[in-house]
Design a protein around this nucleic acid. Structure first.
Lengths: 127, 127
DNA sequence: ACAGTATATACCAAACCAAGAATACAAAAA
DNA sequence: TTTTTGTATTCTTGGTTTGGTATATACTGT
């Protein structure tokens, strides 16, 4: 992939946040929606765009869709996520908060096991 | 500056090339035009956009305008230029070639000293 | 077969962006 | 004072992107 494509992608803060979340592990669409507080249609379209770009892939698990970064993770993307995590800016803080929220979400799901199908739970690392 | 602004900026290959050139030192508009083979109006507008963003600044030298990166150089920008220089992709190769061409241009100006005003020449490091 | 849930797609309007032509401006040269 | 040179701004036009609503699909459970 050319650099400009990636830059255009992460120039959208929401897409950057999604990629940041996914770098920590796979997630399903509705959980990302919940984490980013974004309407379903928008989330779906942004994921489709990133899939098209070759950044993410999806796997169906029943009616649920699990998204993850395509391995090996794009080097330029990783370099940027790394940089932003260590930097100081409002967007960077948001990325940190997102990761914290992600952990809380996973913990919550692990506790109340009627939250999502076990098969999904396994894939996203909370079983 | 927020990250998304920078990403939107460097998502345009031409702007990325300009920033790459400027990291090696100041340049005047017409030389950048020559290096990137881009029409004057487009170059001027892209420089204006980057100035607005707070990435570059300009200094008048007679009728000439000398552009340079604002110091200290934006960390995220530097990290990306650094990454791209060490990576392998068509855009990265272009950045290398641009730097080579920049050196040739400077050398040529230094030789034929009727190419541009001495005062300009001094600023862009070819005197 | 039916209803429900999770996700995707189609479609449309609004907002935004890029390219080019023409023109303006600022300084230097004649 | 006029011309020339280097650069910036304005305006228009066509293209892309975004956000929302409605609808479709794919699967599950009854």
């Amino acid at each position: 992939m050319e650099a400009s494509g990636l830059y255009k992608c992460i120039a959208d803060p929401q897409r950057l946040r999604i990629l940041n979340l996914l770098e920590a592990g796979a997630l399903c669409v509705c959980h990302m929606q919940e984490l980013l507080k974004v309407p379903q249609v928008k989330m779906s379209k942004q994921l489709a765009a990133m899939k098209q770009l070759g950044l993410v892939e999806s796997k169906r698990e029943g009616t649920w869709m699990i998204y993850s970064l395509i391995a090996p993770i794009n080097g330029l993307l990783r370099a940027n996520l790394q940089y932003l995590r260590q930097a100081e800016c409002s967007e960077c803080n948001q990325l940190h908060r997102d990761l914290v929220n992600r952990n809380q979400l996973i913990a919550r799901i692990a506790g109340a096991n009627d939250d999502c199908p076990v098969s999904v739970c396994e894939k996203i690392g909370c079983s």
